[in-house]
């Protein structure tokens, strides 16, 4: 009884070891072959399932990020709007003798407002993180194509143990070569930044 691909690898290796012990006698070989086929099928099924799960996770993560950033930026706009209004009211208020000048409060409010630049910069993390997640998603999608094409090694669903023909293998190599090109095409990562420091500026 095995519990997944890892267990099947062990089982297949055990079967191979048994085969070696039997010195090539025919008895254990069907067992080894069966286990290898099983291993291949399980790896394919597991990979496919993991790809699907990961794609859903990435999409959810993107949604969570966008939602969080949207709420933060909305709060930021409300806060800065309130501060600007406060400064405006203070500046319009008449001075009261004996009371600490309101202009000091206005100075504080203005100081807070002037420091909003770093918040504006930080909130841009969402866009960068989203693009990185999209990049990961594209890479995974291409890798999944490799995995899917390996199913071609199962050329006859009714007879899964049918021998592989040259035609099937040629077709597989052609597909893999195509996917390699596709994988290289998505190799360019759109986000190179290592921090939230402001990026370069170039005027043409």
């Amino acid at each position: 009884m095995t519990t997944g691909p890892a267990g099947d690898v062990t089982a297949a290796m055990n079967a191979a070891a048994d085969a070696a012990r039997w010195d090539g006698a025919p008895a254990p070989m069907p067992d080894l072959r069966d286990r290898l086929y099983l291993l291949r099928d399980e790896v394919h099924t597991t990979l496919h399932s993991e790809f699907d799960t990961t794609a859903v996770d990435l999409e959810q993560l993107r949604g969570i990020l966008a939602d969080a950033a949207e709420k933060l930026s909305a709060a930021f706009c409300v806060m800065t709007g309130s501060l600007s209004e406060l400064v405006r009211l203070i500046e319009a208020a008449p001075a009261t003798p004996g009371v600490a000048p309101l202009s000091e409060v206005a100075l504080i409010a203005r100081d807070i407002t002037s420091r909003t630049g770093s918040t504006v910069q930080s909130l841009q993390f969402e866009d960068m993180a989203t693009q990185l997640l999209q990049h990961v998603g594209r890479r995974l999608a291409t890798l999944e194509l490799f995995s899917k094409d390996m199913a071609i090694l199962h050329p006859h669903p009714d007879n899964p143990r049918a021998p592989l023909t040259d035609e099937v293998l040629d077709d597989l190599f052609r597909r893999l070569d195509l996917h390699r090109t596709e994988l290289l095409a998505v190799g360019r990562k759109t986000v190179q930044q290592q921090s939230l420091d402001s990026g370069g500026i170039e005027l043409f």
């Binding site: 630049g117 910069q121 841009q124 960068m128 190179q192 930044q193 402001s198 043409f204």
Partner: peptide, 26 residues
């Protein structure tokens, strides 16, 4: 977010006036 020279060249050729890399400082 892109800062590769070839992308900037494409932007310039398309008619961009300048290229700023995110995140921007206000």
């Amino acid at each position: 977010t892109e800062s590769q020279a070839d992308m900037k060249a494409q932007g310039k050729a398309a008619g961009a006036t300048g290229w700023l890399v995110k995140p921007f400082n206000p």
